[in-house]
Amino acid sequence: MSAKFPSHVTGLAGGVLLLALGAPVLAQISWSEKLSGQDASTTGEQQTQVDEIDRDEIQRSQAEAWGLTDQEWSRYQKLKDRPRGTWSPDLDPITMLGIEARSEAERRHYAELLVEQQRKRVERELAFQKAYDDAWQRLYPDESRVNFFALGRSPSAQSLLSTDTAGPSRYNVVVALEDCSRCDTEVQRLLDQGALMDIWVVDSDGDDDAIRQWATEVGIPADRVRQGQVTLNHGGQLSVSEDALPRIMPRG
């Protein structure tokens, strides 16, 4: 004859049994959730590390493109968050670092670096302009050429200068000292328009005095040169025919 437990004992035992059976299940769910949370945390940390590596690589690539070190690029980024970044938000990295230089040696370093950058830029633009001119001559020899970005004396140059509402434009201007009255006329016109210029002289032979004398004769104000509104540069290494001068290219 089987023993019968009182109903209140049976219920209690059943409850204990259910709790005992359920305990491992609850423990398993809790442990699974914990593992899941750890996995998510680990994935998030790994993604953050990947993002940081990508960002560092991008910044290093940008710094190299401007000829700057990682430290110089980092200082440029900080300067953008300071008053200079508000006053001059569109400055290129080298110019911003040069303006905010902490010593005369640093200022000179950035000035020379910018000259080299601009010289390379002018060379590339002139090379492409020549390729463009040659292509036009091959494809449409009987039609008047439409200038690409070497504006010269075209009406588009006048239009760009006179309708610029954001302030004076800046141009790379390639000229010759000898036998180029067109060069003198164009420089004078740009001066009258208030344009900012980086002038490159292809036949100066490294003679600073020859450039200074030419600038005086053309009427370039010395104070505009001192203020950096107009710069005078030797351009003997530029690949451009003197017959195609002057070359006037807006700086982007």
Rank of each mutant, 00 (worst) to 15 (best):
K130H: 13
L177D: 01
S159F: 11
S159E: 13
N172K: 04
A176F: 04
A157E: 12
C183V: 07
A127N: 13
N172M: 10
V173L: 04
W136A: 04
E143A: 12
G152Y: 08
A157F: 15
Q158F: 08
Y132P: 00
D164R: 15
L177P: 02
A176K: 06
D179G: 02
K130V: 06
Q137L: 11
L151A: 09
Q129K: 05
E143P: 00
R138N: 05
G167K: 08
A166S: 13
S162N: 13
V174M: 03
L151V: 09
E178Y: 05
A131R: 10
N147A: 14
K130I: 06
S162W: 00
Q129F: 03
A127I: 02
A166M: 01
A176L: 03
W136F: 08
E143W: 10
L151C: 05
S181G: 05
V175I: 15
V175A: 05
R170Y: 03
C180N: 04
L126R: 04
E125M: 07
K130D: 11
N147P: 01
R153A: 14
N147T: 13
L177A: 02
D133R: 13
L161V: 06
A127C: 01
F148W: 15
S159I: 07
S181E: 15
V146H: 04
S169G: 13
R153L: 00
E178F: 01
R153E: 13
E178A: 13
L161F: 05
A131F: 09
A127V: 03
Q137E: 14
D164G: 12
Y171R: 06
N147W: 00
D142C: 00
V174P: 01
D142G: 02
L177R: 10
Y132H: 12
V146S: 03
D179H: 11
P141K: 07
W136R: 03
L139I: 15
R153S: 15
R145P: 01
S169K: 13
A135V: 04
T163Q: 14
L161A: 12
R170W: 04
R182L: 03
N172L: 04
Y171M: 04
Y140S: 07
N172Q: 10
N147F: 06
C183E: 03
D179N: 15
A135S: 12
S154M: 07
F148A: 12
D133C: 00
Y171W: 15
F128V: 05
L126D: 01
A166Q: 13
R153Q: 11
Q158L: 09
P155A: 08
